[in-house]
Design a protein around this nucleic acid. Structure first.
Lengths: 162, 162
DNA sequence: TGTGAAATATAACGCTA
DNA sequence: TAGCGTTATATTTCACA
């Protein structure tokens, strides 16, 4: 999704709700209401309001990629030779839709895309680059960096008290 | 979490369940069972089994970072001057825990960490680097790349029929 | 896999401050 | 307007056949 600029009006309770849900999205409404000292009806209403306002855009399951047979992760930096709008968008669509791609970053700088991928092994990584990235004519150069570990960061909710 | 090597035994139904849940983790058990042609009790049992097996490690809400006042994203590449185990681990902990950090990648290559961050504006980005990254003595160099857009990729579930 | 009972979620309603 | 409590209905969860 493209980055936008509008900002929502969130009070202290909203922030606490988002924080709690960020840590554990599976918490029951009852437990959530209890922790924040809200009535269950109020808690459910506010969470729904956050979804309708678009602050909570969805819910995602996290998978153990190693258990799924993809224990090897890498960041592949992709540099284009031509930067027409059509070229960039078309490649972006193709890369994001390629199996194994976890995230695709469109970035400023010498490189155009960073691909976060998870693959079966080193051979599959080589094949991924050769078969799904460098095959696109517009790709001029790639640079693959092995990922030792990924951690989920603190996020944006701890910083501001609003 | 560190990347591991074990692999789970998943059949076709498991794959379909994971795929459906990856697209929409909020789907009700009833709808999920209906889509895959399973009994509701069986469907609920299998999803729980996937959680207990560690294949599904958790559930997370997705937030609109722009609506939360952090419309600007960047990738910050961090290079260390010293690579003792203690130095690396301590810095990794500190960076991942810094507010604004979405993900922290520990990678191979010239750089040691890639930080995916979301901040309020350009000034906040400068402050982030100066106050939370380059202040660590072990950091020798940083390189900040603006992120135009991030897309969620296809993931690892489309590739193999298992 | 199906069933049934208990717990929970959801949505609508009116009341209060 | 926002919070609260109470409904009725739908759904989930769990133990058991």
């Amino acid at each position: 999704m493209p980055l936008r600029n509008a900002q929502a009006n969130l009070d202290h309770v909203d922030h606490q709700l988002l924080k709690a849900l960020s840590e554990d999205a599976d918490v029951t409404n009852k437990a959530l209401a209890g922790r924040l000292g809200l009535a269950e009806s109020t808690c459910a209403y506010r969470v729904r309001a956050l979804r309708e306002a678009g602050v909570i855009t969805g819910t995602r399951v996290q998978l153990d990629l190693a258990l799924l047979g993809h224990p090897l992760q890498a960041i592949i930096m992709v540099r284009l030779g031509s930067h027409t709008m059509a070229n960039v968008n078309q490649l972006y669509d193709a890369l994001a839709a390629t199996p194994g791609v976890l995230q695709a970053f469109h970035v400023a700088g010498a490189d155009d895309f960073y691909l976060h991928v998870a693959v079966e092994n080193a051979e599959a990584l080589r094949d991924f680059v050769l078969r799904h990235v460098t095959t696109h004519r517009v790709v001029r150069q790639t640079e693959t960096h092995l990922v030792f570990e990924v951690r989920t960061g603190a996020g944006v909710l701890g910083s501001e008290g609003q």
